[in-house]
Design a protein around this nucleic acid. Structure first.
Lengths: 232, 232
DNA sequence: GCAAAAGTGTTCCAGATACACCCATGG
DNA sequence: CCATGGGTGTATCTGGAACACTTTTGC
């Protein structure tokens, strides 16, 4: 027990933080929740939202906590991205940071909390200079999002519960940054049999109105268990 | 500066470790370098090789250092896997661990160092119970290896510089755990034009002898830059 | 001469891609 | 009545999968 104590006791201890790359989809644009710090340190500078990992929580717990504080939302899709640990990455102190990316339905986001925390949704081309290595984190998160979205039905996490196929397609066009053929896209996604077609129509973007659909998660999970692989 | 100091000063500090999932390929089997601890704490129990992250190094630095200590090798292929941070994952103390997976050429591995560190190469089905969450780390690493190998030419990191197409195929059969058609495999890999066919033959496994090949990394990188995507 | 691994082509099928016109309706 | 986005089908191409026999040579 002495040995064991010294084994741990002699090791250095580190500040460990989480930083969250929070994606949203609004006005057919992929956006990120960016914070402008209203207090020191680094007052006025732009950054991702983040926080330190406490003694009593895992890094995922910490990220969940930070996400909830800043968005008011629970049960957010979230995935570990990468650990950033360059000794000098944080100019204030040596901090090891775990980046998580999250997908949020912008319309469910609490606007009051946004003002309170000094956060705003910015499209990818509107993002100003960020502190530390946060820009790199975003780039890595974009790659990961593309990768993940390719074979997993995570796009739905960014859309309202009910959405049109045009919305869905424009979401994937934003993610992949390329145009997708309308007919082929419909054919492919409908053939998967994981969307529930609703009676309702959305008439906000056309006179004719577009059918609304809902992602049927249960059906997807059933199919996935039988070996079905989502791909778009 | 006061504010900034307190901002960091109030945050808790953590022990941060790296654990390495080290893959090798020997006798047509995928193997892992497993350590049996010869000293306390946890004497006699099996684990991955690992160590604490020091103040002056990144987590990647730490993993590189540990790999070098245990294998004698530099310039090893290595990639961050995941951060494991459950509060109680380490029964000795709260330790946040970053897992890295690495690919090694077993025949270049220093056997003396292996004995010295109490490590051995074990096939996947020979691995005993491991401490903490190391088993889970291995499972995750296997998934990642399959994923990565699918679109990146990392298999060559596990083979000798010169190898036969049969060796290469049996490597991928091990990684994917399924048989690959001999003709289709040859067709596909040779069509990529990233292998250099040597005059030499390897006669250790057949009377006829099999041609040796070498991975042409430069050619691959040229092609990759032009948009070519390795896939096997 | 035979065992044992190396080496070699063709056919078939499924899924991806390319592509252009009619529909419904609010203004 | 017309502008606007919604909705639909077919032909072609490409890449993956299946599949069996000949070659070489050490023993």
């Amino acid at each position: 027990m002495n040995l064991q104590q010294s084994f741990y006791a002699q090791a250095p201890r580190h500040l460990v933080a989480v930083d969250c790359i929070i994606f949203g989809f609004e006005d057919s644009r992929l956006k990120l929740l960016i914070m402008q710090r209203m207090v020191d340190p680094f007052q006025g500078s732009f950054s991702l939202v983040g926080g330190f990992v406490l003694e009593s929580e895992s890094t995922a717990d910490a990220a969940t906590r930070v996400l909830q504080q800043v968005s008011g939302l629970r049960n957010i899709f979230m995935d570990q991205l990468h650990c950033y640990s360059d000794v000098n990455r944080d100019s204030g102190s040596r901090v090891i940071s775990l980046a998580y990316y999250a997908l949020i339905r912008v319309e469910e986001h609490d606007r009051k909390l946004a003002i309170q925390h000094g956060t705003q949704w910015l499209a990818l081309d509107e993002i100003p200079e960020l502190i530390f290595d946060h820009r790199k984190m975003i780039e890595d998160a974009l790659f990961r999002l593309r990768d993940k979205a390719h074979f997993h039905p995570i796009g739905f996490e960014l859309l309202p519960e009910k959405f049109t196929l045009s919305q869905l397609r424009s979401l994937y066009e934003e993610i992949y940054q390329r145009v997708l053929d309308k007919r082929n896209f419909r054919k492919k996604i409908l053939a998967m049999n994981i969307l529930e077609k609703l009676e309702e129509k959305d008439k906000t973007t056309s006179k004719k109105g577009a059918h609304l659909y809902r992602f049927d998660k249960q059906k997807y999970e059933q199919l996935a268990q039988k070996g079905f692989v989502f791909e778009i």
